[in-house]
């Protein structure tokens, strides 16, 4: 069983978000990067499947050299080897093409990733990869089991319930909670991570379909006025005259 897990390098959830002076790029200054949390569900499930059934887990990241600490972390958690496509991930289509190119070369049984990255929240790469490779894409799934060597059963959340999907290998799936319990890398894993292969490959020629025109932050919320519960009248007046919502 060969499993490919695609991981994104994203700002820590607590990072302060700032943009450069021209508002055209994200200001990386002082920002801590982590493995995209949704990708961690995919990674740990892949490792669990490997532990149960044998096989290999390869992690793939499209990113520049500064993403390597998080690739090493994925190796420390238990992936066997890693590939970094040496390019800034310009947009979803660009990334999907890189993943598809690697997948064509190596023919994986399962390609897993998080349902979206928590920075741009595109929710697109998995379906694009499925399309580019001509294989099924099941997304987003919160449960993934192998029925036998050729078939997997996934459960996905749908409006008001869940859908149970059976799919033949190979396929693409995206992960969300609670597909697995993400793991903290253990000390021995950290020590062995540096001995595991991390291959750097150059990107295939691919155009991004989009470009960033500008970033802006949401308007700051104004202060909150507290009205004494006794003064419902005052609240009505303020809602009518100041907030102008009545």
């Amino acid at each position: 069983m060969k499993i490919l897990v695609c991981i994104s390098n994203v700002p820590d959830t607590t990072a302060k978000i700032n943009f450069t002076a021209d508002n055209k790029s994200f200001d990386k200054n002082g920002v801590q990067y982590v493995i995209n949390p949704w990708d961690e569900y995919a990674l740990t499930r892949a490792i669990e499947l490997k532990e149960a059934k044998g096989g290999t887990v390869t992690v793939l990241n499209v990113g520049e050299a500064d993403t390597e600490p998080n690739i090493r972390k994925a190796l420390a958690i238990g992936a066997d080897d890693a590939i970094r496509v040496n390019a800034y991930p310009k947009d979803s289509f660009f990334v999907a093409q890189q993943i598809a190119a690697i997948a064509k070369e190596n023919s994986y049984d399962i390609i897993l990733m998080g349902k979206e990255s928590i920075d741009y929240n595109g929710f697109q790469v998995h379906n694009m990869v499925g399309e580019l490779l001509g294989i099924p894409s099941v997304t987003p799934a919160f449960k993934l089991d192998l029925l036998d060597d050729t078939t997997a059963r996934l459960e996905r959340e749908i409006e008001g319930g869940k859908e149970i999907v059976e799919v033949k290998l190979p396929f693409v799936a995206s992960a969300q909670q609670p597909m697995s319990e993400p793991r903290i890398p253990n000390m021995r894993g950290i020590m062995t991570a540096r001995t595991k292969p991390l291959k750097v490959v150059e990107p295939v020629g691919a155009e991004a379909k989009t470009s960033i025109a500008a970033y802006s932050k949401p308007e700051k919320k104004g202060g909150v006025k507290m009205i004494d519960p006794e003064n419902a009248g005052e609240l009505i007046t303020l809602l009518r005259n100041e907030a102008k919502v009545l």
């Binding site: 600490p69 090493r72 972390k73 420390a76 903290i184 890398p185 253990n186 000390m187 950290i190 020590m191 991570a193 540096r194």
Partner: peptide, 17 residues
């Protein structure tokens, strides 16, 4: 180095979680 930082992070994550 990166490895030492990762070890420290594992300890902090363990304490936090």
């Amino acid at each position: 180095n990166e490895e030492q930082r990762m070890m420290a992070q594992t300890c902090k994550d363990f304490v936090q979680d």
